[in-house]
Design a binder for these strands. Structure first.
Lengths: 343, 343
DNA sequence: GCATTTAGTTTACGCGCGTAAATTTTTTAT
DNA sequence: ATAAAAAATTTACGCGCGTAAACTAAATGC
């Protein structure tokens, strides 16, 4: 087995009988060498435990084969899932993904970009917080390295954006709710960290107007990422004060909705479509747990697989052509209504 | 500002007026140079945008300042949280953490170790699946690189283990449940992926015996990490068949409990301590969502902050002394009972 | 079978930094 | 002030690999 410990490509060239430059070509692209040569190399690889020193490999190359993937918060299952999809897409394309979480903290996002700067990635897939304060950092980063945004858009920044069409998805939900019962009011954060929330509010207003109903917006005080907590506290407050304008509450995202559902349960208000129900509650995002809330949550499923793969392939195209695209593309995927028991 | 683009340490030496070897010392340990020199360097750093090329830095060094952190599944909030704590501990100690998720897949765990092998980390903090099949891979990996296990133990493998004392935590819960109502039966996976589940079963049996009650174990069919789904389907089956031996169900972990709670709701069985309740349900782990289940979940909180920090500091000690510890240490932290409304 | 194309070999240099040895400068102790 | 200690500088080499140039061997086309 381990006939001899191979220390570097030179030694591997000696034992495999292939010259070092050819080996170098092989490791950069196995298909760039003749098949017979490739087989000889791969035979030798089974006999000797050698693999190129990543640090030496990346030292000279201006662009590595690394791709940075930055998401706002891996503790949020949505980003955990979409991050995973992006990783897989990168691996499939022969890149090495480096998944970084900003842990709900814009400062950490800057730190992550700073870290990536020194890792010289070929490109970056970034789901930004989208606050104005980040804009300059991201633009400055983008000067040197191609960046494709996903999930949250920053107007006119970076090579492209891929996300969900909130206007379509919210309209879909509003339409359903209006058709099946009282028109919904909207429950959201007062100062949302995510620009999608603003899009959704806008979409709600337009959609309600289109359907000829009076919109009602209820905003929760609170900061940070404890959406369930905020939804539970503030939603509970609105419920117990009978403040919601209608019996139907559309929450800006599932995590808020999960909080509101827990508050409703605590307050003894039955949630659902039945005649004995006091409230209907809907969400947005199809959070993994929304199937297991009580009752299960009616929501919008984002097509995160499509988003992840499109974002990745958009970046790959930029990397392949090695030039910035003339036009900044914005791709929006439709959401799907997931009907469960809460609305 | 950017007076000149600095390309390497040589050029930075020229503009800063400090010799390259001294700069090298500084970047490896800022305190290894005289204070006045350090201040001159840091002044220059504010004027010029230079930082050492990570790849060149790590190329020669046998041991990098990287620390690999491998968890079974970042989509599971428990690992997301504890992974974060570990990251912070590494950064605080001057190391660069590389957080990798095995995505619920033992093969991926092997791939992650393979990846880490080429990144030459100083050490690794590993939360393993703990299946027997991984043992050899991990042991082989551990031959070259120090590894501290956390969360899940593998007997006699690696430098040390840090986790929760399941015997203490389960006993705490069993004691509470017996004292406050009917003695609990145990609900768990038939073929658990996590060795803690086996510990918890053992602990349950011993604890029930100690309290003089007959133990009852109910096992859910199913594979993978969809614990909520399995808990909901299988738990629902047991509930609707009235199969649980007592009205109190202790679930092996919170995610199963979340599934069982959703099944109970679906079946119209009220859960809680009150006289009108049909079931009491308890969990283990204090999952972030267990506060927002309906009703909120009584559970055991693992001290993951303590676990993460102890695991990290144990590894650092090994790295500092630069020799393997004579004795393999196992550190177990106690769990805390979190009383909520479900039991 | 021969010319042409394609692939591999030899040789050589450079990347950015760690680091050792010898020397000079600066600080500290007496 | 002077000797000793500490720190910085100069010089030089090596790490493992990418890569270019000139050359040689093998595969391909007709």
């Amino acid at each position: 087995m381990a006939l001899k410990q191979i220390r570097n490509m030179e030694e591997f060239a000696a034992v495999s009988g292939i010259s070092r430059p050819t080996l170098s070509k092989y490791f950069n692209d196995p298909d760039s060498v003749r098949r017979s040569t490739r087989e000889r190399i791969e035979l030798a690889l089974t006999q000797y435990d050698y693999r190129p020193n990543v640090y030496a490999v990346n030292q000279n190359r201006r662009k590595t084969r690394n791709i940075g993937v930055v998401v706002p918060n891996l503790a949020d299952p949505f980003f955990s899932e979409i991050g995973r999809e992006v990783e897989l897409a990168c691996i499939a394309a022969g890149y090495s993904p480096i998944l970084l979480s900003s842990h709900g903290n814009p400062t950490q996002e800057r730190d992550n970009l700073e870290l990536l700067r020194s890792l010289k990635p070929a490109g970056v897939l970034l789901a930004p917080f989208g606050r104005i304060s980040d804009r300059d950092d991201i633009a400055s980063f983008n000067k040197h390295i191609p960046v494709v945004l996903f999930d949250a858009n920053i107007e006119d920044a970076c090579e492209a954006f891929v996300g969900t069409n909130n206007f379509q998805s919210i309209d879909l939900m509003v339409e359903y709710l209006c058709r099946s019962g009282e028109p919904p009011c909207l429950f959201e954060m007062k100062s949302p960290t995510n620009p999608n929330a603003n899009k959704r509010r806008q979409a709600y207003l337009e959609s309600m107007q289109r359907h000829g109903f009076q919109p009602h917006i209820f905003q929760a005080e609170g900061d940070g990422w404890n959406f369930e907590e905020i939804g539970s506290a503030e939603g509970g407050r609105f419920i117990s004060q009978n403040a919601f304008a209608t019996n139907t509450v559309l929450c800006s995202n599932d995590r808020l909705a999960i909080g509101v559902l827990s508050a409703a349960y605590r307050l003894g208000k039955k949630v659902g479509r039945g005649p004995d129900c006091a409230l209907r509650i809907a969400g947005h995002d199809d959070h993994p747990f929304s199937r297991f809330t009580c009752p299960s949550l009616t929501t919008i499923a984002q097509d995160y697989s499509a988003i992840a793969n499109r974002a990745a392939s958009t970046l790959f195209r930029v990397l392949d052509t090695d030039e910035r695209p003339a036009e900044r593309a914005e791709t929006l995927f439709n959401g799907n209504l997931v009907m469960r028991d809460s609305a």
